[in-house]
């Protein structure tokens, strides 16, 4: 038995070696084409879910499953994120010890800007998410950074998203090799299989989008981040994009990265860019 498995492994390894050695010859080197990727990505979901309007993809499983949508509409009559939204407004408006506030750190004083995050910062050469920008703002003003994923960070996110509702995702990828590399890195993370279950992000949220995984309906990847942060009934609380990435990684039994790890930021950059045109709908609710 062991010998047989061993030989299968050897055969697989040989095949992989053959494949990789053939690959560079078959294509003339990788071409990074975000705009082309985006067209193909959006077209895939339009074909998979005919009749679902682009903006509706922000509503994840509720866009593609009627029964779920009905429960969601009932929950949205008085959404459970209301408390976080109010906390977020209060936190956002509260001045720092030096008298400045979040509004001083952001364009348009932080109102109606969610759709432009993450962006690629040409000075530092990295992807800056809204949450990272929030903490950098705090540090510039002599405040301690907030923990990512939950609590105050999610509340501030919720408020900032709420002021941006209806504004389509507008992620730019500047013509800069570093920005293209970040995009490509995020794309790679999205399609790469990982963990004991050997799933990629795409296994669930592209290939099996709209289908049931036990009790859950898998959300389509298109528009997925437009309703963040979210109140998940499963969490019983709010969570940011980081919290979702960490928990997704854990669910496929892979070791999650730290929140705001460069790979997560690149992933958020890729996913948000794929959703350009989908209107911000956050904060949202999910099962």
């Amino acid at each position: 038995m062991i010998g047989r498995i061993g030989s299968i492994y050897r055969a697989a390894a040989a095949a992989a070696l053959l494949f990789t050695s053939l690959l560079p010859a078959a294509s003339a080197g990788p071409r990074i084409d975000p705009a082309g990727d985006q067209r193909a990505f959006q077209a895939y979901f339009e074909r998979a879910f005919p009749g679902v309007a682009l903006d509706d993809f922000a509503n994840g499983p509720y866009a593609v499953n009627k029964e779920m949508r009905k429960q969601w509409e009932e929950i949205m009559q008085f959404p459970p994120y209301d408390f976080a939204l109010d906390d977020g407004k209060r936190l956002f408006e509260a001045p720092f010890k030096n008298g400045k506030s979040y509004a001083d750190c952001f364009p348009d004083r932080g109102i109606g800007i969610r759709q432009s995050y993450p962006y690629f910062d040409l000075r530092s050469g990295e992807v800056v998410t809204l949450d990272l920008a929030i903490n950098r703002c705090r540090e510039q003003n002599g405040e301690k950074p907030l923990p990512y994923e939950v609590g105050d960070m999610a509340a501030i996110d919720a408020y900032m998203a709420s002021t941006s509702r209806g504004k389509p995702f507008d992620i730019r990828i500047p013509d800069d090799p570093r920005a293209l590399a970040a995009y490509e890195n995020g794309k790679k993370f999205f399609y790469e299989r990982r963990g004991q279950l050997n799933f990629s992000c795409a296994s669930c949220h592209v290939q099996a989008a709209g289908r049931r995984m036990r009790g859950d309906i898998l959300a389509p990847a298109l528009g997925m981040l437009a309703s963040f942060p979210i109140y998940r009934s499963d969490w019983g609380s709010m969570g940011t994009v980081d919290r979702r990435f960490v928990s997704c990684n854990e669910q496929v039994r892979s070791l999650p990265l730290k929140p705001e790890d460069e790979a997560y930021r690149d992933l958020e950059y890729f996913l948000s860019y794929m959703s350009n045109g989908v209107a911000i709908a956050g904060p949202g609710t999910r099962p």
Binding site: K70, D234, P287
Partner: peptide, 14 residues
């Protein structure tokens, strides 16, 4: 009530 609860922790009942 829903036929299948989206989450047993939050089942809307009317």
């Amino acid at each position: 009530v829903p036929e299948i609860a989206e989450n047993g922790a939050v089942v809307p009942v009317s």
